[in-house]
């Protein structure tokens, strides 16, 4: 396969562009996604290629962005809707939670809602409490929605293509602070990563660390450091939270007997608790020789001051320390 080095942002752009070239029912709309190219520049060049019929600026109206996507999807289009910051998906909740997620089931399987709602989450940009949240767990709680959080450029491309081709509403959570990160991305336009398929990012035997999104590069850095010290860390990235690759997680825990979970979102009510409970209920429970450890964001709104902002999410040092503690039975 041919690979090209590109940013996470460009990989998202490429996935949309390839799918729009293949299927004229795929369209993109959202605030400033047209000429401006999106608040984070993700759709740069797409307006020029596809024109205003297929790359549409909307008014500042999140409720109708999501609802219009649902309505278009149920009648035959495959819309991609962008919500500029994940925080503003809260304004789009009725359309997503009560409408898009439920139509198929409520109508006895007669409808399908093939839409993607793309939105960037996460802190680290100095934008404070209303522009920095990681709300993925909210969507995971709603049957009917699929939830994807890619952590690398290649995953961003392959997963977004799968999301666009999926016949269900998919919330595709991009990571602001990863947008400029580079990686090798397959150029094959049939490179599609099935939703629900995780990936072992590093093979290891002493401990399993599960992470996704912005925290993934930090976990990998910690794992690579510790390898030099003789600690073998298995890093598992579920990539999609719903559906979740339970088998991959259970198999890894059975192999290592130790489990650490890392994400940026607030700990309370977060998705790590779900993974932890799933493992505890599974056959992997008997293989655990240490309590499961969660490293998550503090349960506080995101503060503005850069030092405070950095302090609320797990750092590479904290991740490294947690791994050492678990492996040496200090926890």
């Amino acid at each position: 396969m041919e690979y090209k080095e590109m940013t996470y942002k460009d990989a998202v752009n490429l996935a949309m562009t390839e799918e729009m070239r293949k299927d004229e029912n795929v369209i993109l709309f959202g605030e400033d996604v047209g000429l401006y190219g999106g608040a984070f520049g993700v759709s740069v060049g797409m307006f020029e290629e596809f024109g205003p019929e297929r790359v549409k600026d909307t008014p500042i109206s999140e409720a109708v962005i999501a609802g219009c996507a649902a309505g278009a999807a149920v009648t035959g289009l495959r819309p991609i809707a962008e919500i500029m910051f994940m925080d503003f998906t809260t304004i789009a909740m009725d359309a997503l939670v009560n409408q898009a997620a439920k139509m198929r089931y409520m109508f006895g399987g007669k409808a399908q809602v093939p839409m993607v709602l793309r939105t960037p989450g996460g802190s680290g940009t100095g934008a404070a409490a209303q522009h920095s949240q990681s709300l993925e767990a909210w969507f995971c709680h709603v049957p009917g929605l699929k939830v994807v959080v890619p952590g690398t450029p290649a995953d961003a491309k392959g997963l977004l293509k799968a999301a666009i081709r999926d016949n269900n509403p998919v919330v595709f959570v991009e990571q602001k602070t990863l947008y400029k990160e580079k990686g090798e991305v397959p150029m094959d336009d049939e490179f599609v990563i099935p939703l629900g398929k995780g990936e072992i990012k590093r093979e290891g035997s002493d401990v399993t660390v599960i992470s996704y999104g912005r925290m993934l590069p930090r976990v990998l850095e910690a794992a690579d450091d510790l390898k030099k010290e003789g600690i073998s860390v298995e890093v598992v990235d579920p990539r999609t939270l719903v559906p979740l690759d339970k088998e991959m997680i259970i198999d890894s825990v059975k192999k290592t007997g130790k489990l650490i979970l890392v994400n940026e979102a607030c700990k309370t009510g977060g998705f790590l608790g779900e993974i932890s409970a799933m493992v505890s209920e599974s056959e992997a429970f008997d293989y655990l020789d240490a309590p499961i450890v969660r490293l998550a964001g503090l349960d506080v709104p995101v503060p503005y001051n850069p030092e405070l902002e950095a302090a609320i999410v797990p750092s590479v040092d904290q991740i490294r320390q947690a791994i050492v503690d678990v492996v040496t039975n200090k926890r």
Partner: peptide
């Protein structure tokens, strides 16, 4: 230091705060 430019508020003079949400 927790709010920044988008959240300047001074309830004592009736300023209920800037808002990051349009």
């Amino acid at each position: 230091g927790k709010g920044g430019s988008m959240h300047i508020a001074d309830l004592s003079v009736g300023n209920l705060g800037a808002n990051g949400v349009v």
